[in-house]
């Protein structure tokens, strides 16, 4: 049986562990036994986007070594999966032997919902969610990995769930990693627009595929005193969302 290594990502590890456990549950439902290598740390995305190429390269090599024993690497985040799959190969020249392992890692790395549907062939999940839910397309998953229909296909199979169309679902929420602390006013305006669109759907909750966007959107909703809930798509699909 194919071996899956789950890369939980920093935000999930520290801020939202439930997403990691939801991912394990879904991988099991899909027929895979997944492991979490305990020595996993960061994929290097903050360094890559902060201009520290050497730092990002170090962490890429580290991750490639750690996940070498697995057939697949699954990540419950479009932006971390995108960093590995789309950007890692650019860190090394074609001729660079050191890059071989990293290119192999990139080729076997999948965003969670894309893995479940495109690789594992899953069409439905065993889960229940009562009420209307809007889905926001997190940018990196959408544009770097073409994650669009995969989460929607699975969400539609959740019993009791009414999937709402979110206007401008593909427009950025304003998180952007360090962007949101470096340019809080601009980021604040972007998330304000996102909240207005979410509220307009009258859904009682919104789901997405990246924990960074979640922290941003739920934090802005809380500041506003809204009771709209924010879930990671894995939590909804695993039946952990209330």
């Amino acid at each position: 049986m194919a071996k899956v290594g789950l890369f939980v990502t920093c935000i999930v590890n520290t801020m939202r562990p439930e997403i990691g456990f939801a991912s394990l549950k879904l991988l099991e439902q899909a027929g895979f036994e997944a492991e979490v290598p305990r020595d996993q740390t960061c994929c290097g995305q903050p360094n890559m986007n902060g201009g520290d190429k050497a730092g990002a390269k170090d962490l890429a090599l580290r991750l490639a070594k750690l996940y070498a024993p697995y057939d697949y690497v699954v990540v419950p985040s479009g932006s971390c999966a995108g960093t590995i799959r789309t950007h890692y190969p650019d860190f090394f020249d074609e001729s660079d032997a050191e890059g071989e392992r990293v290119r192999a890692l990139a080729a076997k790395t999948w965003e969670l919902t894309s893995f479940l549907t495109d690789v594992a062939g899953m069409k439905e999940v065993e889960a229940r969610f009562d009420g209307a839910l809007a889905y926001h397309d997190s940018c990196a998953g959408l544009r770097e990995l073409k994650v669009k229909q995969q989460p929607r296909t699975l969400l539609k199979s959740v019993e009791g769930l009414e999937l709402k169309d979110l206007p401008d679902a593909e427009v950025c929420c304003g998180f952007g990693g360090l962007f949101c602390v470096k340019y809080p006013d601009v980021s604040g305006e972007m998330v304000r627009k996102k909240l207005a669109d979410i509220e307009g759907t009258e859904a009682r909750a919104v789901a997405m595929g990246d924990a960074g966007c979640m922290l941003n959107i739920e934090g802005a909703l809380a500041r506003k005193g809204s009771d709209i809930k924010v879930w990671h798509v894995a939590e909804v699909l695993a039946g952990l969302a209330k």
Binding site: N49, C139, L142, R143, E144, G177, F179, K182, Y183, M190
Partner: peptide, 10 residues
Amino acid sequence: NASTFCGKCE
């Protein structure tokens, strides 16, 4: 730096 790298431009 004032970009979220959302990728819409590309």
